[in-house]
Every structure is written in C-alpha cells, then in structure tokens.
Design a protein around this nucleic acid. Structure first.
Lengths: 354, 354
DNA sequence: ATGAAAGCGCTAACAG
DNA sequence: CTGTTAGCGCTTTCAT
C-alpha cells in the first residue's frame, strides 16, 4: 500500500469561513481517477500522450474535486519560472504610470501571466528593495520604470528585465521609451514657429526623460538660429504640480517674463496652468504627455503626446518573449514617436498682452 | 559524503544574457558557512535560537553568495500562504481604481507583502477566471472590486476575501466602501437647497454603488417633500463619459430640461461637462467622486468626495489581519463618509437661463 | 500509454 | 544550540 496515505485532516468537510480549506492536490485527483500522479500531470498540461479514455476519467475527477493546479509548486521547478511578471513603478496615481500598468497587465494576462506590483515608495533605496523582493518571488521577468540610481545589481539576477520609459544605468537591458528628444523639439519648434522667442522650459529633477526633452528643446532653438535664455530653463526641485506652480509664478512675475512655457511633464503642466489661472496671464503653453480633461480646460491645452499604452504593451510583449526564451537578440531599444496635438494653449501669439 | 552533489548543470558558468543564472540556495549557504541547512533557515527567519557567532558566519556566507530566499519554495508549505495579496479591479486607468491600488500597495508593502494584479477585462467571466488564477497562485488574500455576477464560488476558496467599493452577492465577506447613499443624499440636498426642483441623475449601468446613490437622491427629495421626476432618472447603457455626454445632450435638448444634473460617477461627470460645454448650457452640476483638475475647469466642479485612498488602505489592513489569522471577527462592513465640496458648478441657481 | 520515484528550495519536527 | 530528515505539490525522467 502507498506510504502516503493522507489520513490527516480529521474533518475536512467543515469550512464555514476557515482560512484552512484544504484544496485538493494532484494526488487526490489521481486516486480518485484511479491513475498515477504522472498521468494527471500530463492531462493537466495538455494531455498529450494519454489515452483519450484515461484523460477523460482524469478530467472528470478534476471537475468533481474542483482541483486547481498549485502554481506555486509548479514554479518550484528550477528553470520553470513562475507565470508572473513584475512591474515596478513609482506612482500609480499618475495616469501615465497607470496607463502603462493597465496595458502591460492586459498583454500579460492574455498569455496567462499575472503581474506583481512591487510597492515602490519614492525613495531610490525602496526600489532596490522592492526589486529584490520581486526577484525572490521568482517572477519570470521584470518591467521597471527605473528611478535614478545604479541598477547594476540586476545584472546577474537571472531574470530578463525590460526598462520602461527610461533606461537605467549599470545594466544593458531592453528598453521601451518614447522619443523624448523628438518630442521636446516638436514642442519648441511649434512655439518658435509661432514667433515666440522667450520660451521657458520647466524640468522635473534629474529625470532622464526631461533631460532629453530639454535637449530637443535646445536643438530646435539652434535650428532656428536662436539662443536659449538659460534663465528660462527652470530645473524644479520636485516633479510635482506645486513645484511647477511656484516656479511659474516666479517666472511670470519677472520683469521680462517668457511669452511661452513648455512644461515637460503632465503634472508640471497642471501646475503651470494653475499658476497662470491665478495670475490671469496667458502665455502660450505646451505640455509633454497628454492628460485627461486637457481639452476641457478654459483654454484647451496643446500637448506633445505619445501612445503610452503601447509603451506598456511593447514592454510586456518583449518581456514575455524574453522570458520564454523566444527572443535572444541583444538588448533592444524601442522608441515610440511623439506627436503634437494643438488645442489652443500652444497657439497663442507672442504679443505681451493680447 | 553528501548524496546531494549538484553535479548537474554541465556548464553553468556561462550566462551572457541567459535567463538561467543559477541563484544560490540555502544549501549553498550552509555548505559555505559550514553549518546545517536548518541553521541557515533559522538565521534567515530572524535568527532566534542560534549562537551569535554562528549566525554571523551564516550571514557572511549569505552576503558573499548574494543569497536570497526563494519565496516560492517557502510558500509551498501548506498553511504557509505566500506573502502576496491579490487585487482584482477593473480599469486602472480610472483614477478611482488607481488610487485604491496605490494605497493598498503601500500598506501591503509595509508588511512585506507584494500585490498581484489579475488582469481583468470588462467581462464578468474574465473576473472569475482572473480570481481563479490568482487563487491558484496561493495568494494570502484577495481584495476584489467586484463586478456583477455571483461570487459564491469564492465561498470555499480557503482564502480571506475583502470586497472593495461594493459588496458581492453569494458570499458574506468583509467589505470596505463609501457611504454611497449618504453621498447621493448630500448631492441632492445641496441642489434642492438651492431651489432646484428638476434635478436629473445619471446612473452607470447596474452598479451597486450608483443604485445606492440614487436611493440617497430619492430620499433627499422625499425629505424635501418633492417627487423625483422619473424621466430625469437616466439609466445609462454604459459607464463611460461618452455615454453620459450623449445622455446629457438629449436631456438638455428636451422641451423641459433639468436645471441641475447629478452625475453619479467621475467619468460620467466628465461626459456631462463635455456635453454642456458644447451646448453652452449651464445647469448646476454635482459629481460623485472628486477628480484631478475638477477645480480648474471653466466652472470648477462641485463634487461629493470621499477618501478613496483610505478605502484601499483599510481593505489592505483588514485583509492582512485576516490572512494572519489576527482577525477572526465575523465579516466586517466598513463605511467611509462622504463630504460635499462646493466649487461653483453646484451652486448655480435654478433660473432657466441666467 | 502509464506508474513509480526523484527531487525543486524551504520549513519544521526531531534528534543529538 | 545545531545537524538531519521528511515532506509541501508538482514536473520529469525512467521503467514497465
């Protein structure tokens, strides 16, 4: 007789609300179907190499018992990574990140993958901790919207990594992002083309992305034969709306205020508009990244936008391929285009007071 | 000699970009530190009952090897549920849900729990599938923003469940939600108090929440001694902005349009405002749930708001306690209060055309 | 085609 | 205190 005779569980039929409802295992199914453990496993995994009749019996047992494969045990097998991806990002409350999350979630879900979100606070050290935790959970791959700081520790993690929105230092991995420089150029060109010559640019602190946007901004000026007034390049201490609001106020109260403002981030755009509304000033404004209700504000907001959802989708697809070993190319660099959406705020002429 | 002599892995030293980097195990650590497996485990789990010196040696080995406990193997132990919670919700793109996600993520993270997001499409069947998948991943608990449909199948799942924002049918579990009826009443009272007598209410399709809001709406009317004009109770076919926009247009083009509109959802509010903007009509408007930029629209929007983040936090806290077995009370029902935030749109007088 | 058996990495019970 | 050992539920050879 089998030495593994579950005579434990005295009264397993009572679980009013108990957290301890014993879920049936493959062994239970095997016994019930009168077959071997291996056969059940084979059936569960596609049922190849199993006689139809046997498979049917197993399936019946599975239904009767309400059996469900334990993904954890399954993932224990080395090499056989779990069927979940990790997504590490900052603030889900930012529609930008939420969109990425949703999109990647959809793609992952279609392949039967779940997505684990590491809790990431603002601090750079927190991200590292979160990533480690996620790795220890044996996720099949990591999608990371990296914070600053070195990510070299991921090098030998043994898990494929795809960076989203911006690259990380210390490691050469796949990266999916938008054409920040092109977008910055687009915004500046649009404004310059309108005759603006004093254009301010608001930058979130040391983000890779805003740096590139600034570069595009400068490039556009150069192409137009103009110099960038460095006093109009505002490096914000924080990347939130409040910070931008304050800076905008200071900017507009100078003796020689800019005639146009380029806000390099959705939250910054909000701050700019808020300050402008209070000041009752209306320089031209172009924001980077579209946002909900942008078209319904007193003056609809002109923005440089890109397909954020596609960012998430591409990242998930790429990661899934890497995880499956289906993609062994060297690290890829996917860059999505930006487009300018004129809505009004960016088309105001440079006249001081219209 | 030990019979477990990893002579497998012919050439494990090459991983240029291989997904197969062998992570060290406790056994490796034990060997390295010259101690037994159990000792390593003890150290990793707090190190109680281990001589300081020994523990130190183990820790050194852990650092040298860069060892990290395999959470999957750890969770294999029955009863010892994994250290992750599941969060099942609809559309992360809706700031309402994103806020819940972020908040619960924070709380879970503080307790060392990760949060797994099941990919949930719109369909009701998809939710069931997602939940099953999550359960099979042995999560320690489920937070669910339930769709319609019966959730009885969760009854014997053996995992604690907390519903968020609305209860589910077929199962008696913890629920954390806002005072929808009170909020609806608040909105209606505010409008009625202004002298409005023809107030329209827009409802998303058969959501529990909007139903309660309608109830509060009716109750306020009753208290004021007024009847609700049923032709102004608009049951939308879909819960999106477009649907609300269309309905609002029809509403306002009637011979006897309402003098005020109560949009029972953030997205609906958006649709209402959009239609009103195009129509250039300005009945009073009150929305349910606050939203970003509500105060910056041409007419700042009056809303009934609640602490959504707290919704997520409470849910996570409750679930964590349940999962830990620290809370064995009967299913709880936590209801968060609502407050009306007057901003302008809700304070317009009932005069037909101002 | 199918059963038996060996682990995956870890925890926990049991010896020393 | 610390080493040994038996599994957790599943996938996977290896026989049969």
């Amino acid at each position: 007789m089998p030495c593994r005779e579950k005579e434990v569980n005295p009264v397993p039929e009572t679980f009013p609300n108990t957290p301890e409802a014993a879920r049936p295992t493959m062994i239970d199914v095997a016994r019930r179907a009168g077959v071997g453990l291996g056969t059940v496993s084979r059936v569960v995994n596609g049922g190849h190499g199993v006689r139809d009749e046997t498979a049917q019996r197993v399936r019946t047992a599975i239904d009767q018992l309400g059996f469900q494969r334990n993904e954890v045990a399954r993932a224990l097998r080395p090499g056989k990574k779990s069927s979940s991806l990790a997504l590490v990002l900052g603030d889900l409350t930012n529609p930008f990140y939420a969109t990425i999350a949703k999109a990647s979630l959809e793609v992952a879900g279609q392949s039967g993958f779940a997505v684990v979100l590491g809790s990431v606070d603002e601090d750079p050290e927190g991200e590292k901790r979160a990533i480690r935790e996620l790795v220890s959970r044996q996720v099949a791959g990591l999608m990371i919207v990296p914070d600053q700081g070195d990510h070299a520790f991921l090098q030998g993690a043994g898990v494929p990594v795809v960076f989203v929105d911006r690259p990380a230092t210390g490691i050469d991995a796949d990266i999916v992002m938008v054409d920040n420089e092109g977008g910055g150029r687009l915004a500046a060109e649009h404004l310059l083309g309108q005759g603006h010559e004093r254009i301010a640019i608001l930058l979130a602190p040391s983000y890779y992305t805003t740096g590139r946007r600034l570069r595009g901004f400068r490039r556009a000026h150069r192409s137009a034969g103009l110099d960038v007034d460095e006093s109009l390049v505002v490096q914000l201490p924080e990347g939130n709306a409040e910070s931008a609001e304050k800076a905008t106020r200071e900017l507009m109260l100078r003796p020689d205020p800019p005639t146009a403002i380029f806000a390099s981030t959705n939250f910054l755009t909000e701050g700019v508009l808020r300050a402008l509304g209070e000041l009752r000033r209306d320089p031209a404004v172009v924001g980077f990244d579209d946002f909900r209700l942008a078209d319904m504000l007193p003056t609809p907001v002109t923005v440089v936008a890109s397909d954020i959802a596609e960012l998430g989708r591409s990242a998930a697809r790429l990661l899934l391929d890497r995880a499956a070993g289906a993609d062994t190319r060297p690290p890829q660099r996917i860059v999505l285009p930006c487009a300018l959406i004129p809505r009004g705020s960016g088309e105001r002429p440079p006249k001081k007071k219209r």
